[in-house]
Design a protein around this nucleic acid. Sequence first.
DNA 1: CTGAAAGCGCTTACAG
DNA 2: CTGAAAGCGCTTACAG
Lengths: 345, 345
Amino acid sequence: MARETATSMDVARHAGVSQSAVSRVFTPGASVSRQMADRVRASAEQLGYRPNVLARSMITGKSRLIGLVVAYLDNQFYPEILEKLSTRLQAQGYHVLVFMAQRTAGDIDAVLQEILDYQVDGIVLASVAISSSLAERCDAAGIPVVLFNRGQKDNRFSTVTSDNFAGGKALAEFLVAGGHHRIAYIAGWEGASTQRDREAGFRAGLAAQGQDLFARGVGNFQSDMAAAAAVEMFSCRERPDAVFVANDHMAFAVMDALRHRLGLRVPQDVSVVGFDDVQLAAWPSFDLTTMRQPSGRMVEATVTALMDKIEGRNGAPQQLQVDARLIVRGSARLPDMYVAAQERK
Amino acid sequence: MARETATSMDVARHAGVSQSAVSRVFTPGASVSRQMADRVRASAEQLGYRPNVLARSMITGKSRLIGLVVAYLDNQFYPEILEKLSTRLQAQGYHVLVFMAQRTAGDIDAVLQEILDYQVDGIVLASVAISSSLAERCDAAGIPVVLFNRGQKDNRFSTVTSDNFAGGKALAEFLVAGGHHRIAYIAGWEGASTQRDREAGFRAGLAAQGQDLFARGVGNFQSDMAAAAAVEMFSCRERPDAVFVANDHMAFAVMDALRHRLGLRVPQDVSVVGFDDVQLAAWPSFDLTTMRQPSGRMVEATVTALMDKIEGRNGAPQQLQVDARLIVRGSARLPDMYVAAQERK
DNA sequence: CTGAAAGCGCTTACAG
DNA sequence: CTGAAAGCGCTTACAG
């Protein structure tokens, strides 16, 4: 079944004008008389003509395609990012080409190569790493890459993160102020900068208050592993009285394990805090105290970094960091000052 | 910054062969001598050459792009579908171009038009409607469209759904068998065929057992509206003793509202059942009895329908329906036979 | 097997 | 403002 789409040549013949005239009518800013434009548009309408974006891309060298690589779609944070990014980009005439990275394999490279083959104008890597050989290729091709929710050692690319260190620190202070003395941590994937920064900030916050980490488990940013780590951690003789889980996604699983497998009450027996503030965190079932990563502002920053380079304003990689904010809910025992503030109401 | 990617011409010059030879080396099944292939590949490697997919698409008329339109990314079901569909398609050399449909606006048309502009080889509409004028345009262009999790009146397009009617019916039978006598329903968006089919099946199931719907609310497939509907429904003098919520996404919100806003126990005071079986449903917090829509098989069917038409095997629209299966968990009172079965263990 | 040539559907200098 | 022509980077008959 042949694709029977009208081309600019068809429209030109129908309107009795040149093919270039048709092209100009559909090129914003090109010089065409009103008369010509009306005539061409009428013919185009009749034939159902629309410019072939692929052909246009070949000439202009711009595909208006942005490649997005994601791995953790079961973590509510990422669908939210995808939705916001896609909507934001659509509004600017760009579109998102999605690539799933197998969270296991380190070979993002194969996937990235495919993205490059589509001549994308930019790439967003959401919580995913890139090899240096491919990084060079992107650089050579002049394609901007933004690392989303991940930092890097060298500053070759733009990064967009929240202040994970400060966030971890604030959480430590909150738990100490809440009167906790056996404070634990369940880590994300050790290779992630977000994981390292949150932990470093958390430890720094504890140290500043004269405390040390009471226990540590690893959840790898996966809910089942986090639950298992929690069960092990809380089955010991002397169990923690508070735990910071490196992101909300794992924190939910931890709360479920604590409540339903170990019969503990949150926050009476143990306080739980997370990081991200995804939608589920606000639901009564979890009512999770957490650091909010402002996804809207992070997406905004991502688009800015991308467009700055694509539109030639600012080619230099930018390290954008937005503030994270403590959202106090019911999953952690409150410091006295909060209790007092609440009673005053 | 000019894009400094090597072209087939560059490789040809470097290898001292014709440009067509280079092209053949990268065209599976083209006839080239081993010698030629080796030489070209070596040059390509050195220059970092990869065929420009866009240019190839222009000639072949195949972009290997599939457009996916989604609206409800906060419903876990859809990220799951996106992940599976994308992975499956990637494995076959296709890629997914994502378009967010504003769930409010009916103008999917604008978005669809943009998809068509990219010369996609196929379109998947996940829980989203299409106007008949655009439908004709897709037909004329020979582009297969698959309606995912939605039916239609005419059978112009392929559809992939589960057996929503049978699913609704099974749920009714389960609740009646569980000894419930005041059975309510919270509907999804009234315009959706899935909503209508589930409700029709549910009502038919009740009728077959001599019961009628006790109460009905509308949640529009949105969690906040579902929660509000539940609160209103359960604030009446005589409240339901069971409720079927049209999908899991709303069911979680309903459970939260029942428990935390109305202080009811699930399932002691009220049984709750849903539809989909998303991951959250299995978590202890919800432990939701629900009909499983087998997302893997639905994605499978979608890809099959798409490829059948793209590869010219079967151009006719197919109405694919997979079975839904009852997953019994703890959110609804069990019929005696289940209790007996459990005690036997 | 290999190369020269036409052409996919556009945009964009270049003349007029 | 408008048209003829070149060319984006490829694939694919067509000869040899």
